[in-house]
Amino acid sequence: MSLTAGDVLDLLSTREIEVLGHLAEGHTYSSIARRMHLSPHTVDTYLRRIKGKAGVSNRAHLMILALQITRLDEPWLKRT
């Protein structure tokens, strides 16, 4: 059974969704880290956790997921 983007969205924290939003915009790990005032290692950790929760195995699938989720949760930046 595979998860839909909506199912995955329910599993993610606000910060994880924020990271995916930046990834969907085409930002690199370093750029995301600067924007979120994090270390690149922390961004990598967020993305590894997202991959684990979503059952995603590579960066291409992670990008597809990021695009799907940001489309589902368009006002993701407004979450508090």
Rank of each mutant, 00 (worst) to 15 (best):
S39E: 12
I50R: 00
T28N: 08
V56K: 02
L11Q: 00
L23P: 02
N58K: 03
V43G: 12
I17N: 03
G21K: 01
G21C: 02
I17F: 00
P75V: 14
Y46V: 07
T14F: 06
W76S: 10
N58R: 13
S13N: 05
P40C: 11
M1H: 13
D44R: 14
S13W: 05
H61P: 01
Y46M: 12
H27W: 08
L20W: 03
A24M: 01
T70M: 02
L11Y: 00
R49H: 15
G55S: 07
S31T: 10
R59M: 10
G6Y: 12
L3G: 09
A54I: 05
I17S: 01
Q68K: 14
I17A: 04
G6V: 08
L62G: 03
M63A: 06
L38A: 04
G26T: 06
A60M: 09
S13C: 07
G26V: 03
H37Y: 10
L9N: 03
L62D: 02
L3I: 04
L47N: 09
L67W: 00
V56F: 00
I32M: 05
T14A: 12
L3V: 07
H61F: 03
Y29I: 12
T45V: 13
D44S: 15
D7I: 04
A60I: 12
L72D: 09
L65Y: 02
I17R: 10
A60R: 10
P40W: 07
R34M: 08
L23M: 07
L38S: 07
D10T: 08
R48K: 15
T4I: 06
D73L: 07
L47H: 04
T70S: 03
T45A: 14
D7S: 08
L77W: 14
W76P: 03
